[in-house]
């Protein structure tokens, strides 16, 4: 009994050390503490904007201030978690009229490259898959802060935004005015280093 427990502890320590080595600059997006937001902003008939966000997603990123070009991000979003504070509108947005969450339940972003522009800015390129269509997008991003948090962890946080043309992703907006054919995507999150 004691032997078994000791062995398990030893194995656990070894595997912890191994993952610690392999993932020195790998971060997990802090969705648990909800320091992560994926928002969108789309015009409403030329009058104002509808603001909304996706509530359920997860992500990981690689970030090393000494080697910025190796930066990478992966995000996975549950489309049906869209929220604009109006249940009937949200139901419509995720229906087959627009995002079709039944058919395409997840949206993903996988970065393919990063071009630094100074120490804390750059342009991220990557494949965005939305509504079953994958398109390469570019998103200017900014490092907002990096360092030890008050709870014994190490964090890095970013923001970025880009404009998407919905037709590129097979979402038909032709019944709506020109101003509604695009939306602005704003993402901000911090990650906890693993």
């Amino acid at each position: 009994m004691f032997k078994k427990a000791a062995l398990a502890t030893a194995l656990g320590a070894v595997s912890l050390a191994a993952t610690g080595l392999a993932m020195a600059d790998d971060y997990v997006v802090d969705t648990e503490g909800q320091h992560a937001f994926i928002q969108f902003k789309i015009n409403h008939l030329g009058f104002s904007y509808i603001l909304g966000n996706f509530e359920v997603f997860e992500g990981r990123f690689h970030y090393d201030s000494e080697d910025l070009e190796a930066s990478s991000v992966e995000m996975e979003v549950q489309v049906s978690s869209l929220n604009t504070n109006n249940a009937e509108r949200d139901k419509h947005f995720i229906s087959s009229d627009f995002l079709d969450a039944d058919e395409y339940p997840t949206a993903t972003f996988v970065s393919t490259g990063f071009t630094p522009n100074g120490d804390d800015e750059g342009v991220l390129t990557g494949d965005l898959t939305l509504h079953g269509e994958t398109r390469e997008i570019e998103m200017p991003v900014t490092l907002m802060g990096e360092g030890e948090d008050p709870w014994g962890g190490y964090r890095a946080g970013f923001e970025g935004s880009t404009t998407l043309t919905l037709a590129d992703f097979g979402i038909d907006m032709s019944d709506f005015p020109e101003a509604m054919h695009e939306l602005e995507l704003y993402v901000t999150f911090e990650g906890v280093r693993q």
Partner: peptide, 8 residues
């Protein structure tokens, strides 16, 4: 339950 799904 449709209309009240988001708490309104």
């Amino acid at each position: 339950l449709i209309s009240t799904a988001k708490g309104r």
